[in-house]
Simulated assay, not measured.
Amino acid sequence: MPCITLVTDGIDGIVGPIRVAYLLGSAFIRMGIGVNVVSPYVGDEVRREFGQVGIKVVELGIKPWLPGQLGHLLIWLMNGLRGLINYSDDCVSINLSFELPIPSTIFYAQGYVGDLLRDLSREFPMHYRLGYYVALPLISAADSTYHRALSLSKYVIANSRYSAESVESRGVRVHAVINPPIDTEFFKPTPNPSQDYVLTYVGKETQFSVLRAIADAGVKLVAFGSKVPWLPRWFTRHRNIDYRGRVSDEELVKLYANARFTVFPFTHEPFGYVPVESMACGTPVLTYNKQGPGETVINNETGWLVSNPDELVKMAVRLWEGGYDESMRVRARERATAFSVPRVINEWVNTVSGLIKG
Rank of each mutant, 00 (worst) to 15 (best):
V285D: 12
S278G: 13
G54R: 10
I178V: 09
S144M: 12
F107D: 09
T296F: 04
S226C: 06
Y155R: 04
R318C: 14
K227S: 01
Y146P: 00
V228F: 01
D183M: 13
V156F: 01
E168Q: 14
E301D: 12
K254W: 13
R233I: 05
L152H: 05
L96P: 02
H268L: 04
A109I: 01
Q110A: 04
V341S: 11
R244W: 00
H238M: 07
R239L: 12
I182Q: 11
I241T: 04
S278Q: 12
S93M: 02
V263W: 11
N299I: 11
Y87L: 00
S163R: 04
A223P: 00
E311I: 06
P342L: 13
I182F: 14
K220R: 08
P189W: 01
K56P: 00
E347W: 09
V285M: 13
R161T: 11
M315D: 00
K314R: 14
Q69G: 02
L130M: 15
T200G: 06
P180K: 10
E277G: 07
V177M: 01
P293R: 06
M126C: 06
L100D: 08
H72S: 06
A257M: 11
M279V: 12
I345K: 04
V172F: 09
I55D: 05
V344P: 10
K188R: 15
L73Q: 10
R237L: 11
E123V: 12
G218D: 02
G34L: 12
V297E: 05
E168M: 15
D216T: 01
T337R: 09
W230C: 06
G61W: 01
Q207E: 15
P180N: 05
V172Q: 04
I182A: 14
E321I: 08
L84F: 07
K204P: 02
Q69D: 09
K227R: 02
P125Y: 12
V20H: 10
R239M: 03
C91D: 02
F208Q: 07
I356D: 10
G322I: 02
P270R: 12
L77F: 08
F264T: 06
S163A: 11
L81T: 10
Y41W: 14
S163Q: 02
F124H: 09
T105C: 07
D44F: 09
E185F: 14
Y155F: 14
A176E: 11
L6Q: 03
M31I: 07
K204E: 03
R318L: 14
V274A: 13
G322L: 07
P181V: 15
K357T: 13
T105L: 07
T190P: 00
A141G: 06
N86Q: 00
I106M: 01
V113R: 15
V285R: 14
E301F: 10
Y256E: 07
Y146M: 05
P64N: 10
K227I: 05
L116Y: 15
T206G: 05
P265H: 13
S209L: 05
R48W: 04
V202Y: 08
A336R: 10
G323K: 11
G68P: 00
V210I: 12
S163D: 04
C281M: 09
G358I: 14
D115Q: 13
A141Y: 08
S121L: 13
